[in-house]
Simulated scan of single mutants.
Amino acid sequence: MIPRIKHIEPRSNFTLYVTFDDGKTVLYDVKDDIRTLPTYRILETEHGLFQNFQLDESRTCIYWNDEIDLPSNTIYEYGTPC
C-alpha cells in the first residue's frame, strides 16, 4: 500500500516534516536529492520555490513543478522518524 501524506511542512535547510495517515512522522532531507539530481538544484537557487510545493490529489506525491516531484513512499522509507 502506498503511504498517504496527512500533513507536510517545509522546514529550514531544505527539510520536510511529514505526517502520514498511519501516524508515522518523519523528517525528510531534500538536500541529498538537490546534490545528486540535477533537476532538484533549482530548489536551492530559485528563492521561495522550496516552500511552494503542492500535494497531489491522491496525497501520494508532492511536486514543485513539472520536473520535480517526490513520491510519498520515498519520503516514508528514507525519512528520519521523529
Rank of each mutant, 00 (worst) to 15 (best):
I2S: 14
G23R: 08
C61T: 12
Q54W: 03
T45M: 07
Y17E: 12
K31A: 10
L49E: 04
L16M: 08
G48A: 04
L43T: 05
F53G: 02
I2A: 14
Q51I: 00
D66E: 15
E46P: 03
L43M: 06
E9R: 08
I62R: 02
T39S: 14
D32Q: 05
L27M: 09
S58H: 10
T36E: 11
E57V: 02
R41N: 09
P38A: 15
D32L: 04
D66I: 00
D56Q: 06
Y78R: 14
T45L: 06
C82H: 08
W64Y: 08
T25H: 07
L43P: 05
I42V: 15
W64V: 01
D29L: 03
I8E: 06
D29Y: 08
C61W: 00
V30S: 05
I5E: 08
W64G: 06
I42M: 13
E9H: 09
N13G: 03
M1F: 13
K31W: 05
P71Q: 13
P10K: 01
P71K: 14
D33K: 14
K6T: 03
W64Q: 04
Y63M: 04
E46F: 10
D21C: 10
L37K: 14
S58V: 00
D33V: 01
T25Q: 15
N65W: 06
S58I: 00
I62N: 02
D29E: 13
N73D: 13
N73A: 03
N73R: 11
D29A: 12
L37A: 07
K31P: 01
R35H: 06
I68G: 10
D22W: 06
I8V: 15
R11W: 02
L49W: 00
T25G: 01
Y78G: 00
M1D: 14
L70A: 07
Q51G: 02
L16Y: 12
S12R: 05
E57G: 12
V18P: 06
I68A: 11
P10E: 10
Y76G: 09
D69I: 01
Y78S: 09
Y63V: 01
D29M: 03
C82V: 14
F14V: 03
D66C: 04
